[in-house]
């Protein structure tokens, strides 16, 4: 029973309530750093660390933080984790840090993170908050990666820097430029909405069949 609950919270973030494809949150890093798969993954992992870390703290201290100053407290916690992530990336993987540049400090402003603290971590026990944060962050990572992979394959003819096509492939440069981000995201959102529409239709059919039998 308990296990199921945690699992539910996790899967919810990855698929049903995917922060990007369903809630349409965190668009800024989503569009900005997904020009290659590796950047997307680095950003996803940094966000994962910040989101899970701050969710644990916010959820553990939820009774001590007066609600009048909760948003400021959340931001202080988030900003601290972001700074830690920033310096750690700079020390361990300077190349990736160089590519992501200003977007690491900007994780603070990712509304997905503050949103989860306000909507979930500050109201639920730590264990559930951790699973919720992990689910949401995994969903975000998945979304970033799918966008980054599509854009890198089409725009650069490569994945993780490995060339996939022969010499004759003409890179579709617009895909790694900002418009490519909007185009790819648009198509993926279209798919998700179509999928939801089909699912609702199917559920309605099942309900209909059950009632008539």
């Amino acid at each position: 029973m308990k296990k199921n609950e945690s699992y539910e919270e996790f899967v919810k973030g990855v698929w049903r309530d995917n922060p990007v494809f369903v809630q349409v949150l965190g668009m800024c890093p989503m569009l900005a750093v997904t020009n290659s798969a590796i950047n997307a993954i680095a950003m996803g992992l940094a966000t994962f660390f910040v989101l899970v870390g701050s969710s644990i703290l916010v959820s553990s201290f939820r009774h001590w933080i007066p609600k009048q100053v909760r948003i400021s407290c959340f931001i202080i916690i988030i900003a601290t984790f972001v700074t830690i992530a920033d310096y750690t990336l700079l020390a361990l993987v300077p190349k990736v840090h160089k590519e992501l540049g200003a977007f690491i400090p900007l994780i603070v402003a990712n509304c997905l993170i503050l949103g989860r603290q306000e909507a979930f971590a500050s109201r639920y026990p730590t264990r559930l908050a951790v699973f919720d944060a992990m689910g949401m962050a995994a969903g975000f990572l998945l979304a970033l990666f799918s966008l980054g992979a599509v854009r890198e394959i089409l725009g650069d003819g490569a994945l993780f820097g490995v060339k996939l096509f022969g010499e004759n492939f003409e890179p579709w440069v617009i895909m790694i430029l900002p418009p490519g981000g909007f185009l790819t995201l648009g198509v993926i959102l279209l798919f998700f909405n179509w999928f939801k529409y089909k699912k609702d239709e199917f559920l309605a059919e099942v309900a209909e069949a059950e009632r008539s039998s």
Binding site: W64, I65, P66, V69, S72, C73, I76, I77, A79, T80, T83, I84, Y87, T88, L90, A91, L92, P94
Partner: peptide
């Protein structure tokens, strides 16, 4: 509450800065 949160955050940031500086 805010002062304590700020203090802890400051200490954490100094810690990470000091510990990563040599590597950087």
């Amino acid at each position: 509450t805010l002062a304590i949160a700020g203090l802890i955050s400051g200490i954490a940031i100094i810690g990470i800065y000091e510990s990563t500086l040599p590597t950087i």
